[in-house]
Amino acid sequence: MPTLADLLVDAADGVLTLTMNRPEVFNAMSDEMSDRLASELESAPSRADVSAVVITGAGAAFSAGADISGEDAHERFDVRALDRANRLVRAVVGCDKPVLAAVNGVAAGVGCSLALAADLAVASSSASFLLAFSRIGLMPDGGASATVAASVGRARAMRMALLAEPLPAADACAAGLISHVVDDAEFPALVAKLAARLAAGPPLGFAATKRAVNAASLPGLDDALERERTGQTILLRTGDVAEGMRAFGEQRRPVFRGE
């Protein structure tokens, strides 16, 4: 069951570190975890002791995405899950302090969306990025339809979204999807170095830079979030999604019928 320990919060030397802490399920996002993460990000701009934010995951994964475990998962998912994802992404993009995603392992589904919404995404060499939505009959959400295309272009975005192929960290960096990739052994040191550099940087300059770059590269993010919300709400009512989620729980390949 979710507990307050699902999200570890630490502030030191100007860096607020938010660690998703459900390693037993690869940090799949519960409602409680998503809400707490969004709340921490929303409050960060007003904290005098915070100059930069790091988001990471405990254990072997960054985040496997939404928690769709258990029976009748398709009946539990509704527009509230989409609103949580949208709130989280808006909190990352809207934070006037730099946000760094420290991607220590797989980032899938809305976990991938979260990582790509960050200002910098640093990945260990064993990490990968996966828009897994089509595997269960859904479409990308969490702003991924905008952030991925803005970073790597339409063709690569379509490949990631339609084929749901994992993109290794090195390829993600070469394609411009993330900012840094480093060997696993060097990953913690690089994250600490970049976080310290961001925390020591010019806060007003960073805030203005975020606003300018996001306005230029993601001018349609709010529209994308609303399109994803509408499309996903419709898809969640389909037989294909019910089949996709059942197949996920039963660890088998789904049979989609377009209904």
Rank of each mutant, 00 (worst) to 15 (best):
E24K: 06
T233V: 00
F62G: 02
V103M: 13
D83Y: 06
L16Q: 13
A11P: 05
R36W: 09
V54M: 05
R154V: 11
T230M: 03
G109T: 01
D222W: 01
G205L: 03
S46Y: 04
P203I: 00
E165M: 08
D67E: 12
A185D: 14
A170C: 11
F206Q: 08
A212R: 01
Q251D: 15
N104Q: 10
L130C: 06
K97I: 00
L198I: 03
I68W: 14
V241Y: 02
A115I: 07
V15F: 15
A108V: 09
G205Q: 05
V181C: 12
P23H: 07
G231K: 11
L82N: 04
P168S: 06
D6N: 03
E250T: 00
A60W: 10
V92W: 15
I234G: 01
F129V: 05
A157M: 08
L167Q: 11
G176W: 10
D31S: 11
M33E: 05
E42K: 04
L18A: 10
S39D: 13
S125V: 14
A216C: 07
L114N: 13
A247M: 04
N214Q: 09
L235Y: 02
D222I: 00
L88C: 10
P219F: 00
V53M: 05
R22K: 10
L16F: 06
A175Y: 12
V122Q: 15
G239F: 08
E24H: 10
A12I: 04
D171Y: 06
F62I: 01
A28K: 08
G142V: 07
H180G: 10
S39P: 14
S145A: 13
A101H: 14
R246C: 07
K193A: 14
C95N: 09
H180S: 08
C95W: 07
A146C: 08
A64K: 15
R237N: 03
A12H: 03
A28I: 02
A174M: 11
R159P: 00
